[in-house]
């Protein structure tokens, strides 16, 4: 650790790195800030400041279509998160705590693919599959699709947590007369809980973010919020979109901070 200092010495390189660093932060944050600021502008024209106003938020509150899509989104996120968290956690246990079962390597690879696959490809795959097996497109098909990509993300997060947890904890529990279930319930689960919750929050976020896959596998009336907003954006840029966007970013921030708070608590 001491030599980290050497790497961050007050050299010319380091000044360039700092400059780049702050530039990247500006790059990452300024666009979002512009959206947030203008969501509070009273002007009907997006680019001009028309004084502080909440009129676009008030307008949102009365937008039936938008509220319906929000409701869809929340249901989809809730169900897909619950299932993905349970399945993903079990998968992480299978990979980290049981090393010698037959097709473990194959499973590991399959589990990894949904993370890198482009949305469009996954969307096409699921659309073809659902139409082929005759599954009606609607809220159910959206939930099934979201579970499919969320399992992997949960498994990755939980697995990272498990990797930091010595298996002597479980051995000690077994040595102290705990059955397998008691060991899981009293020792393993409480210790990986930050990972499980972190994975669940990530799944929730991804589900609330998804546009492409949902737009492929949705049916009439089952549109989710991001898909609805995407449609609006494609048509035109309006201050109302700024307001929705601000709310969506706020929701994401709440999720990040909850996730961080949980991880932090888990470390102590």
């Amino acid at each position: 650790m001491t030599s980290r200092h050497a790497a961050s010495g007050r050299t010319r390189t380091d000044r360039w790195l700092s400059l780049n660093g702050w530039f990247v932060f500006a790059f990452l944050y300024l666009p979002i800030l512009v959206v947030i600021v203008f969501s509070f502008s009273g002007a009907a024209n997006v680019g001009t400041w028309g004084g502080f106003s909440l009129r676009w938020y008030r307008r949102l509150a009365g937008n039936e279509q938008l509220l319906a899509s929000l409701e869809n989104s929340l249901w989809v996120a809730l169900y897909s998160t619950i299932v993905a968290t349970v399945f993903g956690t079990a998968a992480a246990l299978a990979l980290d705590r049981y090393r010698r079962w037959a097709s473990r390597g194959t499973f590991d690879a399959i589990l990894y693919l949904p993370v890198i696959i482009p949305d469009v490809t996954m969307a096409v795959m699921l659309l073809l599959w659902f139409t082929q097996i005759g599954l009606p497109l609607g809220r159910a098909s959206i939930i099934l699709a979201h579970i499919a990509f969320n399992i992997s993300f949960v498994a990755i997060v939980v697995r990272a947590r498990l990797a930091h947890m010595d298996s002597s904890m479980e051995e000690a529990a077994a040595d102290l007369y705990a059955t397998r279930w008691q060991t899981f319930r009293r020792v393993t689960l409480p210790l990986i809980m930050p990972g499980v919750l972190g994975g669940a929050l990530l799944a929730l976020t991804l589900s609330l973010d998804d546009v492409v896959i949902t737009s492929f596998v949705q049916g009439p009336g089952s549109t989710t919020l991001p898909v609805h907003v995407f449609g609006l954006i494609r048509r035109s840029v309006t201050p109302e979109i700024n307001a929705v966007s601000t709310l969506m970013v706020t929701a994401s921030m709440i999720l990040v901070f909850s996730s961080l708070a949980i991880q932090r608590r888990g470390e102590n």
Partner: peptide
């Protein structure tokens, strides 16, 4: 022990085979 590991994987494994 191996069988137990496989059983833990089954829900996710089966799901990903069917839906991925």
């Amino acid at each position: 022990e191996a069988w137990r590991g496989f059983l833990h994987a089954v829900p996710a494994y089966a799901y990903l085979i069917v839906f991925f």
